[in-house]
Amino acid sequence: MLQNRRIHRTAAVLAAILLLAGCAGTPSGAAVVGRWGSTSSGQPNLDIQSDGTFSGTDGCNRLSGQGQIDGDEITFGSIASTMMACEGVDTWLSKAATGNVSGDSMTVLDDGGSTIGTLKRSGS
């Protein structure tokens, strides 16, 4: 009888834990974290960490910084960049202010709110 009560209590505690874990859902910012863009020569890409740090390239220059993630959006803040001159490369990513994720695409906007480009989620 005592053993049955312990089993029932243990089952109830486990059920409560699983219920609470299910309510937690996807962690905030999980949609933003990861690799974006292409690693092909001359193409923009970013690697975004869960703490908002990011690094990558605009296709020519190395980029890095500390952003702020809120749900499916990242605000990039100041972007540190090398200053190489590359012919025939559109360095639009260096002008990024925010990025909004929808599915496997990140729409990148400048500080005026205009869309300046799109990055696709890339493999790990």
Rank of each mutant, 00 (worst) to 15 (best):
S124A: 15
L19N: 02
W36N: 03
G71E: 10
T82Q: 11
S50H: 13
S102H: 10
N45S: 12
W92A: 00
L2P: 13
T10A: 14
I69F: 05
A15M: 12
L93V: 01
I69A: 10
M1H: 03
L46I: 07
Q43F: 06
S64H: 08
T26N: 14
G112R: 13
T26D: 13
Q66T: 14
M84S: 05
Q3N: 13
G37Y: 01
S122V: 00
T118F: 04
I74H: 08
Q66A: 10
R121N: 05
F54G: 05
A97L: 05
G65Y: 01
G71I: 02
L93S: 01
V89M: 07
R6P: 01
G34Y: 04
T57V: 04
G88L: 13
C60M: 09
G103D: 09
T57W: 09
L119Q: 11
D51N: 15
Q49W: 00
G99R: 09
S41E: 14
G117D: 12
G56C: 03
G56S: 03
A12H: 05
A96G: 11
G112P: 09
K120V: 01
A80Q: 15
G77S: 11
L93A: 01
G29K: 06
M106I: 02
A12I: 13
G56Y: 02
Q3S: 13
G52R: 13
G77C: 13
C60T: 02
V108C: 06
G103Y: 06
L20R: 07
M83D: 04
T39F: 10
R9G: 00
R35D: 08
S81V: 02
G22W: 12
M84N: 08
Q43L: 11
L18G: 12
A21Y: 04
A11V: 13
T82W: 12
G29Q: 06
I17N: 05
D111V: 02
F76T: 01
V89L: 05
I69E: 07
R6N: 12
R121I: 00
C86I: 01
L63D: 04
T118E: 15
C86G: 04
A85K: 07
T10E: 08
D70E: 14
L2F: 13
G34R: 03
V32S: 04
A16V: 13
G56N: 03
I116C: 11
G71Q: 11
S78T: 09
D47Q: 14
T115S: 15
V89R: 10
A11Q: 11
S105M: 10
Q49Y: 00
D47I: 07
A31L: 11
P44E: 03
L93C: 04
V101E: 02
N100L: 12
I7V: 15
V33W: 04
W92V: 00
